[in-house]
């Protein structure tokens, strides 16, 4: 049985104007844009994990912020449970936030240093008028215990500086989960946590997902982590999705030359493994004036004339497996 589509993103686009001085604007007369996200489309089904993978500056964080409506898209649509939420405002947006939550990368920045852990976790309950007084406190205790901050009574009164990075990230998870959301966007939730504790956070997220039939959009630069947690994977390059498929497909039969390069570049903890070589030129260009045609063509060793003129669209190569490349 196919699961229900929880989130659908259609031709989503976000351009940020480049800040210039008044004089520069007067002289050049045109406004430049950072093309952070350029017409991306994907679907995420209920109870599944969609891993959005890419290198720094590829637009994956912007995508996460668009989905959660923290920033306004330039164009395109965000459809949550069949409803177009792209431009909803006021009460409807508030209602939407009960269902869609985000966990940020840096637990040292995402918690208010002057708010006790208990207050921070209770905050969403107050904002949405869900619970007050003893009931609120009880809900917070339960949530803190759920994320492993035990005894909850002790953690309730602590300040963020008294916690380790891993514990802080648990507070961020507790705060995102206390409203019982359906969709959670997690933006690099483990990259600032010590290696030996990362698996614990992943395990906690998977446990909560199973228990509550949650849907995750898991944003990461680390394909090995994406492989561990995701059901689906979307590979982003310079603001565009170049390949989407089920996890097994991406790892067993990658199509896009960029996906292949990424896969071979990942270090593997095994010195006896045969070392691979990747043929890839240069570094990621600027997204202010991205290359014409396929944005990857200046670095691609298979590029043909067509690639610099015509932008490839996402084509189905196998069931559930899509790639944007003229080679296929």
């Amino acid at each position: 049985m196919e699961r229900k589509v929880e989130l659908k993103v259609v031709n989503l686009k976000k351009y940020f104007p480049v800040q210039k001085s008044f004089l520069e604007r007067l002289l050049s007369g045109k406004i430049e844009y950072v093309q952070a996200v350029n017409r991306i489309s994907f679907e995420v089904r209920r109870g599944e994990v969609f891993g959005l993978v890419g290198e720094s500056g590829c637009g994956k964080t912007t995508t996460g912020r668009l989905i959660t409506r923290l920033i306004e898209p330039t164009e395109g649509k965000i459809i949550f449970k069949g409803e177009d939420v792209t431009f909803i405002q006021g009460e409807r947006l508030r209602e939407f936030r009960k269902y869609v939550q985000i966990i940020f990368q840096n637990p040292y920045a995402s918690l208010n240093p002057r708010m006790r852990i208990g207050e921070a976790t209770a905050h969403p309950l107050e904002i949405h008028g869900i619970a007050t007084g003893e009931r609120k406190k009880k809900m917070v205790f339960e949530m803190l215990e759920k994320v492993g901050l035990e005894p909850a009574k002790k953690f309730y009164d602590l300040y963020p500086f008294e916690l380790s990075g891993g514990q802080r990230q648990r507070v961020a998870i507790a705060r995102a989960m206390i409203l019982n959301p359906e969709l959670v966007v997690a933006d690099e939730p483990i990259s600032m946590i010590d290696v030996s504790l990362r698996a614990k956070i992943l395990e906690l997220m998977l446990m909560l997902k199973e228990e509550r039939n949650l849907t995750y959009v898991f944003i990461t630069h680390d394909l090995a982590v994406a492989k561990y947690i995701s059901d689906w994977i979307g590979i982003m390059y310079l603001g565009e999705i170049v390949e989407i498929g089920r996890k097994e497909q991406i790892f067993s039969t990658p199509y896009h030359p960029y996906t292949k390069a990424l896969l071979s570049a990942i270090p593997v903890p095994d010195p006896k493994r045969e070392k691979k070589d990747i043929k890839l030129k240069g570094e990621v260009p600027s997204s202010i004036n991205p290359p014409s045609g396929c944005r990857f063509h200046p670095r691609c060793s298979f590029a043909k004339d067509k690639c610099s003129n015509l932008k490839p669209s996402l084509k189905m190569v196998d069931k559930d497996h899509y790639v944007a490349c003229h080679l296929y």
Binding site: V195, A199, K200, E203, P269, R273
Partner: peptide
């Protein structure tokens, strides 16, 4: 042993990750 078991390895499928409790 604990550290090696807590690192995701892209060459393995259905890997069981562990973590080291405490700090």
């Amino acid at each position: 042993e604990g550290l090696l078991n807590s690192v995701p390895n892209i060459e393995l499928s259905d890997q069981k990750l562990n973590y080291i409790p405490g700090m």
